[in-house]
Design a protein around this nucleic acid. Structure first.
Lengths: 90, 90
DNA sequence: TGTTATACCGGTATTAGAATCGGTGTCATG
DNA sequence: CATGACACCGATTCTAATACCGGTATAACA
């Protein structure tokens, strides 16, 4: 294998990331947020909808900067499914 | 255009990111660090040598986690070239 | 109604990240 | 000297991120 396909864990983490960003955006315009972060509105929409599982570090950093989010907190949130519902393979 | 090529600014930021990670790794083994972060040793080497300009958020988060780095501080360091006054490891 | 603005979606194009392989250099230790 | 363990490099493979396009839907408003 050369470029491993996304694992289900990757996909789920991407969905949590998207949901988090959408919540944090609140009632702000998606268009304005994307332009402020200097990313394409399509890219922001795909990330928010969970269709981009592993976006670039710089992309997330730019969006988080616009939304006033801490990258450390974002990572902590999405890497452990909140609610402490750890359903890993035992 | 469809997928914009990397800008010189992207490349330079990638190089700063790599240099920062390498300094933070200190005398730790590159192999051990990569395995702990669950990334390929080649990937870590490419990021440290600045040959991967825009790595994935999850990749950097995993490496930073192993090295005990704050993602917010990493981003702050590499996104402003002027403040390149890194006196972490001398 | 028609217009405007935003969000959403499928399809597509193109670059780039992530990983493997094979080989080289080095340094320690047997 | 030989061997083993890392680090490094170039080439290659293959998937995924980013972005643009055309179209649809919806709501606000003149």
């Amino acid at each position: 294998m050369v470029r491993l396909p996304l694992t289900p864990a990757d996909v789920e983490r991407g969905q949590r990331l998207g949901a988090l960003l959408r919540r944090a955006r609140g009632d702000r315009s998606m268009l304005e947020t994307a332009l402020d972060a200097r990313v394409s509105p399509e890219t922001l929409r795909k990330i928010e909808s969970g269709r981009v599982a592993t976006p670039a570090f710089s992309t997330i950093a730019a969006i988080a900067g616009v939304l006033g989010l801490s990258l450390d907190e974002v990572w902590a949130e999405i890497s452990r499914p909140e609610g402490a519902r750890d359903r890993l393979v035992s």
